[in-house]
Design a protein around this nucleic acid. Structure first.
Length: 464
RNA sequence: GGCGGAGUAGCCAAGUGGUAAGGCAAUGGUUUGCAAAACCGUCAUUCGAGGGUUCGAUUCCCUCCUCCGCCUCCA
């Protein structure tokens, strides 16, 4: 597949460096609260990316970390009166439950920052040894930006008129740490009173690792010096990923990531989502409003990953109808294919355009459009042709990670069933007044009665 | 101030130097006692504004307007 690369600013074909397995790393969540749909836009697109590679026959190795130690996790665990480990474990479990609901494949490896502190300390030692880092008097360690000529390539720092020193100076005046270069970033933070019991021993004294370092250390551990692709939200380009490159290339000497895949933030109602505006949604919030996680997924893949996605409750409502339409199309194809007509094809039939879209810079909205168009084109097919089309349809669907809603056989309470039967008789007797009244009565109890020619269907009224 | 991105129908949203995918909503019809459902249709002479290049631009160039993100933790 072809994918845009943030570093070279070009679209490039993706090929595993080792010729067999595509190895990639995604910056995972900081577990101090529930993940919101903005976080999930990134994770869902990364998931579609992986599924597309796999559907195309490429084996993958997917690593995504859990950040379980930083200012926020320490602060909030203390506020909650829990140990850091107990606190982050709880949120990690919640995160996993959300991931499963929204259809994310679990990463092959999901390392946590705390359990990799020895690796981080080792990397710091290497950096000091090579002259890329220095310890300050208080026991903190900093990366020396001036020692790495390539600093700023990813975020085009050198093309900005941003005077690093000056800008950082204004913002760093209250910083308690001591560093030489004002833009130098921390690798090891010396212990502070507010850290409580959350500190580890190091050659430079008690403290904890800096945030940027954990990813570098875990990548080194699981993917080595060079690997295929690194991904995250756009906000991580600077400084997080810029710093990772500096640390890793200086410590390991490799080329680090061959490709950078960044997902643009989503907007809510046209603006940044934030707690204070009351538009920061979690999956649980949306479920409470009657939407499913799969409907959320549909909305999240409804825009190209490099464009802002304007999330609205209206678009979320529309996704239910869209998914139902796809499900209907699939059932239609299956019916036309007939019993026992199993066919696996090498091509995608009417869904070739949808598949091509995915492979062309992960154009998920294009693929979605291709799905609907393909269904219309395939509607006249029968037998083996229909079966082949269905196979293509299912492969694209799998790549998108969409699980279609199934036709549900509802359990109908006896009194509802009786009420419906009474109405049906009234209707047969052409007693319209009573019939309509009973229909309203059923509706009031949450059941919708749809009249057919010779029978009727009872369905729960769709949630508001 | 610097860097980056976006402006396409009521909403969400693809796309292309050659005359605008798709979804939702809306709406017409068939059907129905009426609805709902289902099925069949309709739905942007136009792509923020103004110039320019071109046989031809929404797509390339310039100017302007508006919006958003980043530059501090952030997916």
């Amino acid at each position: 597949m072809r994918l845009f690369d943030t570093l070279s600013r070009t679209e490039r074909d993706l090929r595993p460096i080792d010729g067999s397995t595509f190895r990639f790393y995604c910056c995972g969540p900081t577990v101090y609260g529930p993940a919101h749909i903005g976080n999930f836009r990134t994770f869902v697109l990364q998931d579609v990316f992986r599924r597309t590679l796999e559907t195309g026959g490429t084996r993958t190795l997917h690593v995504r970390n859990i950040t379980d130690v930083d200012d926020k996790t320490i602060r909030d665990s203390q506020a909650a009166g829990k140990s850091l480990a107990a606190f982050t474990t709880g949120w990690t479990e919640k995160f996993h439950a959300d991931c499963e609901k929204i259809g994310l494949l679990p990463p092959h490896i999901e390392p946590g920052a705390v359990e990799h502190i020895p690796q981080q300390i080792a990397m710091i030692a290497t950096l000091i040894e090579k002259g890329h880092a220095y310890a300050s008097d208080d026991g903190s360690v900093y990366f020396k930006i001036s020692s790495f000529a390539g600093y700023g390539r990813l975020s085009r720092l050198d093309e900005r008129e941003l005077d690093l020193g000056k800008t950082q100076n204004a913002r760093s005046s209250s910083d308690e740490y001591e560093k030489d270069g004002l833009a130098d970033f921390v690798l090891w933070k010396s212990r502070r009173p507010e850290d409580g019991e959350n500190f580890w021993h190091s050659p430079w004294g008690e403290g904890r690792p800096g945030w940027h370092l954990e990813c570098s250390a875990m990548i080194q551990e699981y993917l080595g010096d060079s690997f295929d692709l690194h991904s995250g939200g756009v906000d991580l380009v600077f400084p997080h990923h810029e710093n990772e490159i500096a640390q890793s290339e200086c410590a390991c000497g490799g080329h680090f990531a061959a490709h950078w895949f960044h997902i643009t933030h989503l907007l809510v109602d046209g603006g940044k989502m934030s707690k204070s505006l009351g538009n920061l949604y979690t999956i649980a919030d949306l479920e409470t409003m009657g939407h499913t996680a799969m409907e959320v997924r549909y909305v999240l893949i409804g825009a190209h990953y490099r464009k802002p996605l304007n999330f609205t409750l209206d678009s979320l409502s529309g996704s239910r109808e869209a998914l139902a339409k796809l499900a209907k199309g699939a059932r239609h194809l299956a019916a036309n294919a007939g019993e026992g007509c199993v066919l696996t094809t090498a091509d995608f039939g009417p869904f070739q355009a949808a598949w091509d879209s995915l492979n062309n810079d992960l154009n998920t909205p294009g693929a979605l459009g291709g799905l609907f168009t393909g269904i219309r084109e395939a509607s006249g097919l029968t037998g083996a042709d229909a079966a082949a089309a269905l196979a293509g349809f299912n492969r694209v669907l799998r790549a998108l990670g969409i699980v279609l809603p199934e036709e549900i056989n509802h359990t109908i309470p006896a009194e509802i069933q009786a009420l419906a039967e009474t109405r049906w008789q009234a209707r047969l007797a052409k007693n319209w007044a009573e019939s309509d009244a009973l229909r309203d009565q059923l509706a009031a109890q949450g059941w919708q009665m749809k009249d057919g020619k010779d029978s009727y269907i009872l369905e729960p009224s769709s949630p508001a």
